[in-house]
Design a protein around this nucleic acid. Structure first.
Length: 421
RNA sequence: GUGGGCGUAGCUCAGUUGGUUAGAGCGCCUGGUUGUGGUCCAGGAGGUCGGGGGUUCGAAUCCCCUCGUUCACCCCA
């Protein structure tokens, strides 16, 4: 294959029609549900001061080695980074604008991480998310989780598992970390070399390891849930009760830790069981009760999630649900008199809200009919010398067996509206 | 960052032990008598066989390097 001069950068891709229409439909479904649940959209910058993301944690790979960072042309230059996620931006925005809590926002957009691409993993990927800041009511957690759950269901996905855990709070976590570190250190000689390194940085992360040699030690490790303070325990129980009240099935996953260090208490992940790849997490989130304060704002609790649109659509493919939407073109105008009548007719139909398209370049009727067929439009409006003379078009049913008949130009919009029901 | 698979027309792929102008299907274009698609038929366009170097009389086919892609580790959505 002759190499094109340029191609989309590694880990990025062009989303072409009609697949792009499917993504837009998914985005629309999400925004609609978020708005119904009282969330308003936040549109934040694609890049931020690097410091905003550094607050995500010094031991997270997202921060330490996956950042697309650069310096601007200022004097002195500012160290900026393309956003690797949006929770930090939302919290920065909260700290900056001080909206009245509770502040409920949703977002969608591309995020960037400098990683090796693989199945379901891209350097530019699209996330949908919500954040509720300013309340630590466990029912806010439930509302957030339910929104994600219902969104998956609305797409038709059935094989999604909600994994739930609590990562404790600043009071009980240190005690647990000490116990965990003790256990892992005692068994360090059997741990994989990578996990030994991870143990130094952040023992919690060792629980994430998929390496066989670590499995036994991880299975025997102490669990956070056994160390929760009464307060965190009560919160966790209330979240579980709320989910049960709404009939949302969840699976307790006591070793679920998340890749960002800011999480506290409620932590969850949506796993797409239909995906056979290593990346089957289609969404994840939790509480981050200290993040706003870290970013210079008032102490503010928060809960939210981010869903990966790219993976969600892969999961839809795997479950054969949420197909590409029907084409918008309802009438394909075939004009064999040169094309200027198609110009008028298309313009009229479009003004009336009826999707209309045509071909260009004065092609033969046969060629134009072929394009009409391919367009998916249910009707072709044919214009030849006869029709022009009579102020009419020939309306042909391309999908059914109604045949074709002449329609006066003045009645075209009404006729098609009636036929489309 | 580490390791494996793969790179032949727009797409999916054939290319026999290295041997003449590199093939198929789909898609695309043009026709099949004067204005009609989805079926059928006939033509046609389109490839420096990812790139570079080497071995050879001769390489898509063998060797080396490189780039791209893909999967996995890591990490995460």
């Amino acid at each position: 294959m002759a190499e094109p001069t340029f191609r989309a950068p590694k880990g990025t891709r062009d989303i072409l029609p009609p697949e792009s229409g499917r993504r837009r439909a998914a985005l629309h479904a999400f925004s609609e549900q978020a708005e119904l649940a009282g969330f308003g959209e936040i549109m934040s910058p694609m890049f931020e001061d690097l410091g905003v993301f550094k607050r995500l944690g010094e031991s997270t790979d997202v921060v330490t080695k996956e950042m697309f960072d650069f310096f601007d042309k200022g004097d002195p230059p500012q160290h900026l980074a393309l956003r690797p996620e949006l929770t930090a931006s939302v919290c920065r925005g909260f700290a900056e604008h001080r909206p009245t809590p509770p502040w409920k926002v949703w977002y969608e957009g591309p995020q960037f991480r400098y990683e090796q691409p693989q199945a379901g993993r891209y350097r530019q990927f699209h996330q949908l998310g919500v954040e509720t800041l300013g309340t630590d009511d466990p029912q806010a957690d439930v509302d957030v989780i339910a929104l994600g759950w219902n969104f998956f269901a609305s797409l038709g996905l059935r094989q999604v598992t909600l994994l739930l855990n609590s990562l404790g709070d600043p009071t009980c976590r240190p005690e647990y970390l000490e116990a965990l570190r003790g256990h892992l250190t005692d068994n360090a000689s059997s741990l994989s070399s990578q996990s030994k390194v991870t143990l130094e940085r952040n023992p919690l992360r060792v629980l994430d390891s998929k390496r066989n040699e670590d499995a036994e030690i991880i299975a025997a490790a102490p669990l956070m849930v056994d160390y929760l303070t009464d307060e965190s325990r009560d919160h966790f129980d209330a979240v579980r009760a709320g989910l049960e009240q709404l009939g949302i099935a969840y699976e307790l996953s006591p070793r679920l830790v998340r890749g960002l260090d800011y999480y506290t208490r409620t932590t969850f992940e949506f796993a797409a069981d239909a995906l056979a790849t290593a990346q089957n997490a289609v969404g994840g989130g939790g509480r981050y009760d200290g993040l706003v304060e870290d970013l210079g704002g008032p102490a503010t609790p928060g809960i939210g999630f981010a869903l990966g649109l790219d993976r969600i659509l892969l999961a839809c493919d795997a479950e054969a649900v949420f197909p590409i939407p029907e084409p918008v073109t309802k009438v394909f105008v075939v004009d064999v008199t040169g094309g200027s009548h198609a110009l008028d007719v298309c313009n009229t139909l479009r003004a009336a809200g009826i999707g209309a398209d045509r071909s260009y370049g004065g092609r033969s009727m046969k060629a134009q009919m072929k394009v009409a067929d391919r367009s998916g439009a249910p009707f072709a409006a044919i214009i030849g010398e006869d029709e022009v003379a009579g102020g009419e078009v020939t309306l042909r049913d391309l999908r059914g067996d109604t045949g074709q008949h002449r329609v006066a130009l003045d009645n075209l919009v009404a006729t098609i509206s009636r036929l489309l029901g």
